[in-house]
Design a protein around this nucleic acid. Sequence first.
DNA 1: CATCTCATGTAACTGGTTACATGATTCG
DNA 2: CGAATCATGTAACCAGTTACATGAGATG
Lengths: 198, 198
Amino acid sequence: MWYCQADFLLEVTDLMLKYALLGLLSHKAMTGYELEGFITATIAHFWTAKLSQIYRTLKGLEEDGWVSSHVEVQEGKPDKRIYALTNSGRKALSAWQDTLVTELDDLRQPSLVRFFFFGKREPDDVLTQLKVWRDLHSARAHYFREELPKVIQASKDGLTYTERDAFFWEATRKLGEMSEQTYVAWLEEVIQALEKGV
Amino acid sequence: MWYCQADFLLEVTDLMLKYALLGLLSHKAMTGYELEGFITATIAHFWTAKLSQIYRTLKGLEEDGWVSSHVEVQEGKPDKRIYALTNSGRKALSAWQDTLVTELDDLRQPSLVRFFFFGKREPDDVLTQLKVWRDLHSARAHYFREELPKVIQASKDGLTYTERDAFFWEATRKLGEMSEQTYVAWLEEVIQALEKGV
DNA sequence: CATCTCATGTAACTGGTTACATGATTCG
DNA sequence: CGAATCATGTAACCAGTTACATGAGATG
């Protein structure tokens, strides 16, 4: 009973990067460096990680017994340490995936903190900033719409991902596109209201 | 010259909570406890802070000379320490506000990390989770549409905020509503696609 | 000749969370 | 009678960032 409880709590804890790495490693064994590349290509829009943090987290995962590693000696290139999921890691990943989340993420959006206090700023400066943001979001929307699909398609052909895996990846891409469109529409609205004079 | 550079860098640094507190204190002098209430009422959807962190940050602001405090003795209630903006703090706030931001926030959305790896989960469990999220987002959309406007209206009458301040507050509310609607629409799409069988 | 890619790490720091400690008053 | 409100803080911990250190080979 005691053990059971402790295990459960352990599984629910949200150490996102740990689970993200387990998830990626469930596709294939990889080095920390490679993992960073995959993170950039796949989940970077909603979770980023620096290499230094990835290496530290991998060490932690190995201490947990959720991954194991071996060094591959290379010529002309640095040696590499390849990490692979263990059975225990596979179980931890499933257990995490099987928990139902009943709360929403609380997002930190520093630009909105700035925006909230724009009442005291020069109207022209405010418009300049808003237009910069609009253009940035617009560019990102374009990336989601035009560039990311190619990356997803390429990976699907590369058979690392199943059809079903690709469906969920594509869905996150779609959300990215929709979210950016929402930001652009909202900024357009705000800009127009301010230009009409508020 | 040297000084100038150092000053500039100091001002650009993004210590969000520090500036959020300065921004709130520019309306009126307040205690840490009160500030927490205002944060919850105003910017909580895009920046949260725990009381312990607020107290620590206020201490830091006082060391910077950006706020000053005095203790007010109360009967039947704990004494309170009231913080007020200093001139130097007002300058720091303006300097921060006057910087142009040319990069987008990078959002951390743990639920999307989970979602990304749903390909390996039981289809029924996936649908259950998606419907929970849809309902949560839908409830939040309702809050933004029906409840928040009342709070904003009440504060406007309470003359702490100018018409222009209220405009920007209302705009953040609108973005919240739009974002939640986007999430709901996206989740509906995904749920439908899965129910048709993917 | 410089920068990018591959590849791994450590150390110091910072901002945020959790848990703890205190204690009177008021409301349901 | 228990919970919420008012009110302030400290200590330990944890995840993430920045800066540093190393170094060969390929590309422009």
